[in-house]
Design a protein around this nucleic acid. Sequence first.
DNA 1: ACATATTTGTTCGTATGTATC
DNA 2: CGATACATACGAACAAATATG
Lengths: 238, 238
Amino acid sequence: MPGQPRNSRTSEESRNSRIQRQVMQLIIDRRLQAGALLPTEAELMDGLGVSRNSVREALKALQALDIVEIRHGYGTYVGQASLTPLIDGLTFRTLARHGHDDSGALAEILQVREVLEEGLIRRVAATVTEGELDRLEVVVSRMEVAGRAGRPFPDLDREFHELLYASLGNDLVPQLLAAFWTVFRRVNGARGRSEDPSPSLTARWHRDIVTALRARDVEGAQRAMTVHFHGIARRAAG
Amino acid sequence: MPGQPRNSRTSEESRNSRIQRQVMQLIIDRRLQAGALLPTEAELMDGLGVSRNSVREALKALQALDIVEIRHGYGTYVGQASLTPLIDGLTFRTLARHGHDDSGALAEILQVREVLEEGLIRRVAATVTEGELDRLEVVVSRMEVAGRAGRPFPDLDREFHELLYASLGNDLVPQLLAAFWTVFRRVNGARGRSEDPSPSLTARWHRDIVTALRARDVEGAQRAMTVHFHGIARRAAG
DNA sequence: ACATATTTGTTCGTATGTATC
DNA sequence: CGATACATACGAACAAATATG
């Protein structure tokens, strides 16, 4: 039976996480932006007074968080700090926790997406420009073409929702939604569920959203979004 | 000038990420739950046909994602797959991208929280039980005590919002909100901003939320939540 | 096209710290 | 207390990828 970790001396941080912290601090202190070149492993060894293996283990951990990006034979760069770790974590968590037959975890993700998008669509209705609506309509038209042919259109779906929230000027929003979207799709795919049983119906949901936005009908837009999500949920539950 | 990575042979996965994937697959395939003991490094070496260092680097990466948990001298366990990586990533991203003086990144996080909680509170109003309301009221009372003494109460605040969404039965929701909350607090703290300039006001916002919920006043609850967030935003902008 | 320097990737050996029995 | 099993850490060497001349 494992007890709590010993930790004899007080506030002793593990070597590895200390190095991770130091590298992050180095990036912040030197104002390094994404894509900037980091010190080499050898320089970090000297600067931090640890072995190469320790440096490498810390860098691997930071790479998993997309805080650094390592290129074989060239160097280590400051990473994008994207939400990739969230995608990986949520995907794993969903597959590992509920085995291979439960859909409860997917429903949780879907509920978060639904709440977010229902709230966001109201704000979008106030800020979206005619130009953005035109671009959205182009995407919807392509959805309808695919839908009539019975072809699913995951990329168009993703593009639609990304375009939709561009006018908010909040970079976190589209990344977060894209993360949830990706997890949903990955887990659904890993369970062998069909991609989109009725593309034409999905296309119409999106058409309804644009129509309501064009009319600056806040309530209607939110209602259309709700319908959209209830449609997804019904499929996922089956 | 660095170009794009070579990647001569198509679909070549790096060794390290392959090992990571294999370990995750092992957990899923064996139906290992959080806290379960994983094979030792030596066993993984044999099983995957790679050296100890490669195994260790992969495990460190998985540890950063909270997919495994490594205990010195004892063994490696399946992790909680919490949202810790999201917290770390968002904190770093906020501090690194906007330097030390901008509050735009904090505003983005706050907007996501606001949209989420405004949407969630409406659902809570329909599902929350009297017992849960009682517990919420206890927390609020303690807030008011602290508020009258001028003491900030970050832990009570966190507990309130966690309790609030418990009735939804969606485990992801409180974890996600807690993650945003932690990032906000950490970044705000790293910038030397005062914790909560007027605790008594904060306490009243929470009181108003409970009062509206008790009356099953959906609109009022959402309005109270909006007021709460606008208050936070006003402070963060200063 | 070739050689070379630089940088990361991988492996091995060894020693040390930590928990269990 | 010792014995055992395990993770942690360091150092050295070679392999592979990349850039430069």
